[in-house]
Simulated assay, not measured.
Amino acid sequence: MSRTGSLKNAVVAFLVPLPSILFHLYFLSHFQSSTNPLSPLWSWCFHHPLLLANVFFFFNVNVLFWLIGLIQSSNWMIDLYWTVIPVLLLHYYATHPLAQFDPWRSKIVIVLTWVWSIRLTHSYFRRENWRCGAREDWRFADLRLQYGKHWWWISFFSVYVSQQIFLIGICLPLYVVHSVDKPLNIWDFVAVGICLCGIAIACFADTQLHNFVTRNTKLKELGKPMVPNLDRGLWRYSRHPNYFGEQLWWWGLVVFAWNLGHGWTFVGPLINSMCLAYVTLLVEQRMLKQEYRAEAYRLYQKTTSVWVPWFRSSAIAVKDKDT
């Protein structure tokens, strides 16, 4: 992709959330300046913040992103906005007129979410060689080939409507944090620790993976054999430490909500974890289709934990000793 194309995509990505942002700002301005009873529209927006968030998502993400994806023949934008939508939802919940919360807990969660978002956004652009919209997720590309001429309408549900379920669901703790005013206690600091561990693990794992991929790319360019498998660092103890770190982050947010009496919000991260389990299966199947790494990866599967970091089995220890 050319720099011009990347710049155009960056401009589109910057402008695309503005309808929801401007509507919410207009609502806040109207609510604060109005001395008369609210009209039915504004009254609905006031009394149903969670439903309004879903309306924003449906029209601004599902419909608008989908139309842009049809025009560009690429659904790249939803991948980028996974790092942005939680931040937008967080500030929407925090600024809604019905919001009530402990200011310290709110500040902690806002800082944590921004750190998570910046980390993941950096990882995204580093992976994409600092280009915007250069490619869509390989899973969407595979589905595009699988469904052919029907992909244009199937993509609306499989790429966008499904993302609404996942993203609104896993962000429910952010809503709870700004719906309950309760002083900080020890469980908030437990949640902070879990969230920070998740961010740190995902950061180190992604960096190690990026370095591995970069090294293999250089070896390929030089015509040298590529290293078949990454099994060093965090990847020595887990086949998907980046996934583990990401899930730890979301479950850490659930502890915040559980502490506020809303443990039911575990449903969102649970659905997301179940989906990620399926993605893990797809990723591993893809690895096994690559001849140069298939044998090494089968051994890796037999001896290394899937998600949760753990010591490698004795088979690896024997192999290392023999070599």
Rank of each mutant, 00 (worst) to 15 (best):
E221S: 12
V254C: 01
L167E: 00
T214E: 15
Q146L: 15
D137V: 04
L222G: 03
V192R: 07
N259W: 01
H210P: 03
V180D: 06
R239M: 08
L222K: 14
A202H: 05
T217G: 12
R239W: 04
L209W: 03
H150S: 15
V254Q: 00
F244G: 09
N229R: 12
P228L: 05
L219I: 06
L172A: 04
I201C: 06
I186R: 08
T214M: 09
F256W: 08
D137M: 06
G245P: 07
Q247E: 14
L145F: 05
L253V: 02
K149L: 15
I168G: 00
G193Y: 07
R239L: 07
E246N: 12
A141R: 11
D137P: 09
W251E: 00
L209R: 10
V192D: 05
N229H: 10
K220H: 08
L222M: 15
I170D: 00
H210F: 14
L219G: 10
L174K: 04
G193D: 07
H240E: 04
H210W: 10
D137Q: 07
W187R: 08
K149M: 12
K224L: 15
A202L: 05
T214K: 14
L145E: 14
D137L: 10
W235F: 14
Y160K: 00
W250T: 02
S158Y: 06
W152T: 11
T207D: 14
R215S: 09
L230R: 13
K218M: 12
V227Y: 08
L209T: 03
L143H: 12
R144H: 12
V177S: 06
N259C: 10
G198S: 07
M226C: 15
W251P: 00
P173W: 00
L248E: 02
I201L: 10
I154R: 13
G148N: 11
W138Q: 12
C197T: 06
W138K: 05
K218Q: 14
L222H: 04
N242G: 10
F204V: 14
I194E: 03
R215L: 15
F244P: 08
W152I: 12
Y160I: 05
S238I: 06
I199W: 04
F166M: 09
W250Q: 00
W151M: 07
W235Q: 08
I186E: 10
V227L: 15
R139E: 11
E136M: 10
P225I: 09
